[in-house]
């Protein structure tokens, strides 16, 4: 464990909790892509199946359980409890265009052709694009609530910190995993445009809105 991975994990946790609190406090999931949240629930479920087979540390196990629990809680709030506030018309990204190619890629490019390993690879590839329905929704409506942009910023920061973590591990532990790194870099690039808007607008006190 290094400081970059720890702060990355905490940033990830902060993002998840910010989103849950936003929905809970405002009693509304307006502007939130339910599709992205379903994809994240699938990501955590397929990646953390090893909870049942291997124990790494108390930290590792508790974070996995918290991530999975929060992911399903978020999906429940969007599609059940606050369903009336869900903006399905604007959440129109076709997720099959992500899930099917990602599934194919996981079967083709993996470390080991075994059930758990392919699911893990699938989760890594899927995570890298899971935010696309959310970004698509923002580009479609042309705006995002400030709290939603904080959520996205924490999520993007988590990915950026993981890249620093991998550079650290490469130098000090001679450890690297090409699948995780390539997918992680792709994922971080997807946030670049958003980071720019966040710094130039939200941090200056303005609402994030895109030109029509």
């Amino acid at each position: 464990m290094n400081i970059f991975r720890l702060t990355g994990d905490l940033s990830h946790l902060a993002a998840i909790i910010i989103l849950l609190l936003k929905i809970w406090k405002t009693r509304s999931c307006a502007g939130i892509s339910g599709k992205s949240q379903i994809l994240f629930a699938i990501v955590f479920t397929t990646r953390y199946l090893d909870l049942l087979s291997s124990f790494i540390s108390l930290y590792n196990t508790s974070m996995k359980v918290i991530y999975i629990g929060c992911a399903y809680a978020t999906v429940y709030l969007i599609y059940m409890k606050f369903r009336a506030t869900y903006d399905g018309n604007h959440d129109s990204f076709r997720v099959e265009f992500l899930v099917v190619p990602v599934g194919g890629l996981a079967v083709l490019i993996n470390h080991d052709f075994s059930f758990l390993e392919i699911l893990w690879t699938f989760s890594i590839y899927l995570e890298s694009v899971a935010i696309l329905p959310q970004l698509f929704m923002i580009s479609k409506t042309g705006e995002a609530e400030t709290i939603t942009t904080h959520y996205l910023f924490c999520l993007g920061l988590y990915r950026a910190l993981y890249i620093v973590n991998w550079i650290w591990r490469y130098y000090f532990e001679a450890f690297f995993d090409l699948i995780a790194i390539v997918a992680g870099v792709v994922q971080t690039i997807l946030y670049c445009d958003f980071f720019y808007l966040y710094v130039t607008k939200v941090l200056k006190g303005k609402k994030l809105s895109l030109p029509a």
Partner: peptide
């Protein structure tokens, strides 16, 4: 270098 999945990462 080890080219394997980082099992300790989240």
């Amino acid at each position: 270098c080890h080219r394997k999945r980082p099992k300790d990462e989240l």
